[in-house]
């Protein structure tokens, strides 16, 4: 079943409905490596990660960005209206971490001369782990 989009209900200051992802599993990192083509060993080979000074393998930053993409697509009812997605990675996501994604509408602007009903909705975005630590933050522009 698809989540109904809330894009047209959003106002400046609206919080986006939060997306809570299941705990990160090592097998998910293997799947993500295969699906994305990012085979950096640090995400899948324990020995490589520990030799590099990390406690274990850890999630691709892009996996968290994908979660934010999922949040935006849910809000819009699909990926089509997502015009821009930007993320800054802040903290490492480890296996077992539970990532919650959310955001807030920062601006709603008319597109072009403003004569049409087209609007651009700007949102700020974040991912937090179970400890409340922000693991990445960013922004998006959604066409409405």
């Amino acid at each position: 079943m698809r989540t109904p989009p809330v894009l047209h209900e959003l106002q400046v200051g609206s919080a986006l409905p939060e997306l809570v992802k299941p705990p990160i599993e090592r097998i998910q990192l293997v799947k993500y490596a295969g699906a994305s083509g990012d085979f950096n060993r640090i995400h899948v080979e324990e020995g490589f990660a520990t030799a590099a000074g990390y406690q274990s393998v850890f999630a691709h930053g892009m996996l968290s960005m994908a979660f934010l993409g999922e949040l935006c697509a849910r809000v819009c009812g699909g990926p089509g209206p997502v015009r821009e997605l930007k993320v800054r990675f802040k903290a490492i996501t480890w296996p077992g971490d539970v990532i919650t994604c959310g955001g807030t509408v920062t601006a709603i602007e008319p597109v072009g001369d403003g004569a049409s009903a087209a609007r651009r909705i700007k949102v700020s975005l974040w991912c937090k782990n179970q400890a409340g630590e922000v693991t990445c933050e960013g922004s998006a522009e959604l066409a409405a």
């Binding site: 640090i42 590099a52 930053g61 892009m62 089509g80 997605l85 993320v87 990675f89």
Partner: peptide
Amino acid sequence: DWKKLLHAEQSYRFARP
């Protein structure tokens, strides 16, 4: 040195999906 490389930022601009 790939062991010392981290992804800091990423952005996309889409004309369409």
